[in-house]
Amino acid sequence: MLTKADDFPIHQTPEPVAHAGTDRNFYDRYFFNGYSPDGATYFAVAFGVYPHLNIADAHFSVIRDGVQHCLHASKVLHSERLDLSVGPISITVVEPLQTLKVTVKDGEGLAAEITFTGRAFPIEEPRFTRRIGPRAFMDYTRLTQNVRCTGWIEIDGVRQDLPAGTVGSRDRSWGIRPVGAPDPQPPVPMTMSGFFWQWTPLNFTDRSVFFHVNADPDGSAWNTRAVILPDGAPQGGGFHTSAARMTGVELVPGTRHAQGGVLEIPSETGSIRVNFEPFLTFLMRGIGYSGAWRHGAYKGELVVEREDIDLASADMGAPEHVHIQALSRVTLTTPGEAPQTGLGVFEQLIAGPYKPYGLG
Rank of each mutant, 00 (worst) to 15 (best):
P253G: 01
L82Y: 05
A136T: 15
P266Q: 03
E154F: 11
R127E: 13
W197N: 05
F43V: 02
S85H: 10
E80N: 01
D216L: 14
Q98A: 13
I265N: 01
A112C: 10
C149I: 01
P182S: 05
V49D: 06
Y140T: 12
R177L: 08
G180W: 10
Y289L: 14
V76H: 14
N275E: 15
T205R: 15
I153Q: 07
I132V: 15
I228P: 04
M316H: 13
P187H: 14
P122H: 07
Y140W: 15
E347G: 11
P186W: 09
G317H: 13
A44P: 00
V322G: 04
Y50V: 06
E268L: 06
G342Y: 01
I287A: 01
S242H: 11
M138L: 14
W197M: 11
T22A: 15
H321V: 04
D57Q: 02
G300D: 14
V76E: 15
T13H: 01
I287Q: 00
D156Y: 00
P319K: 11
R24C: 00
H78W: 02
F60T: 02
E125I: 10
L71F: 11
N203P: 02
I287S: 00
A297R: 13
V179R: 04
P178F: 10
L100F: 13
K355L: 15
D57S: 03
I89H: 03
P88F: 05
R81Q: 14
K105P: 00
A351C: 10
T144Y: 05
A56L: 07
F196M: 11
D183G: 03
E124T: 14
L2T: 08
M246W: 10
E264M: 05
T41S: 12
A181V: 13
A46K: 07
G317C: 12
G165D: 07
A244Q: 02
T13W: 01
V62F: 10
M190W: 13
L2D: 07
G360I: 12
N54L: 13
E250K: 12
R159L: 03
A164W: 00
S271I: 14
H212T: 06
A73F: 03
W222P: 02
S79P: 07
Q68N: 05
V213P: 06
G109N: 03
A18M: 05
K355C: 08
G232C: 01
P184D: 09
V304F: 04
A314N: 08
D183C: 08
T41A: 03
P335G: 07
